[in-house]
Simulated assay, not measured.
Amino acid sequence: MGSRVLVVEDEMTIALLIEDMLVEMGHVVVDLAMRLPQAEELARKAEFDVAVLDVNLDGRRSFPVADILRERGIPFVFATGYGASGVDPTYAHSPIVTKPFVIDELKTAIEGLVGVDPGR
Rank of each mutant, 00 (worst) to 15 (best):
M1W: 12
S3P: 02
R4W: 08
V5Q: 06
L6F: 11
L6G: 04
V7G: 03
E9P: 10
D10C: 13
M12R: 09
M12Q: 09
T13F: 15
T13K: 03
T13P: 05
I14G: 04
A15H: 10
L16D: 09
L16G: 08
L17P: 00
I18M: 15
D20F: 10
L22A: 08
V23C: 03
V23G: 01
E24M: 09
M25E: 15
M25P: 07
M25Y: 10
G26L: 05
G26W: 03
H27F: 07
V28C: 07
V29A: 04
V29C: 05
D31M: 01
D31T: 03
L32C: 09
A33I: 08
M34H: 15
M34N: 12
M34E: 14
R35L: 12
R35P: 01
R35M: 13
L36W: 02
L36D: 04
L36P: 00
P37W: 11
P37L: 10
P37C: 10
P37F: 10
Q38R: 13
E41L: 14
E41F: 11
L42M: 14
A43N: 09
R44E: 15
R44M: 10
K45W: 12
A46V: 13
A46P: 13
A46W: 11
E47P: 04
E47M: 07
E47C: 07
F48H: 05
F48V: 02
D49T: 04
D49S: 04
D49W: 02
D49F: 02
V50A: 04
A51H: 12
A51G: 11
A51C: 12
V52N: 00
V52I: 11
L53S: 05
L53N: 05
L53W: 09
D54Q: 04
D54H: 05
V55D: 02
V55N: 03
N56K: 11
L57W: 09
L57P: 08
L57R: 06
S62Y: 04
F63L: 06
F63A: 06
V65P: 14
A66C: 02
A66H: 00
A66M: 00
D67Q: 12
D67G: 09
D67M: 06
I68W: 02
I68M: 04
L69S: 08
G73E: 14
I74D: 11
I74L: 14
P75D: 14
F76S: 01
F76L: 02
A79R: 03
T80I: 12
T80G: 12
T80M: 13
G81N: 00
G81I: 00
G83F: 10
S85T: 14
G86P: 03
V87K: 00
D88V: 01
D88Y: 09
D88E: 15
D88M: 02
D88K: 04
P89L: 00
T90Y: 15
T90G: 12
Y91T: 03
A92Q: 11
H93M: 10
S94K: 01
S94P: 05
S94D: 13
S94M: 07
P95Q: 14
I96R: 03
T98C: 13
T98E: 14
V102K: 06
V102Y: 09
I103Q: 14
I103H: 09
T108P: 00
A109G: 07
A109K: 01
I110Q: 00
I110F: 01
I110V: 11
L113P: 03
L113W: 08
V114F: 02
V114I: 10
V114N: 01
G115F: 05
D117N: 15
P118S: 08
G119S: 15
R120E: 15
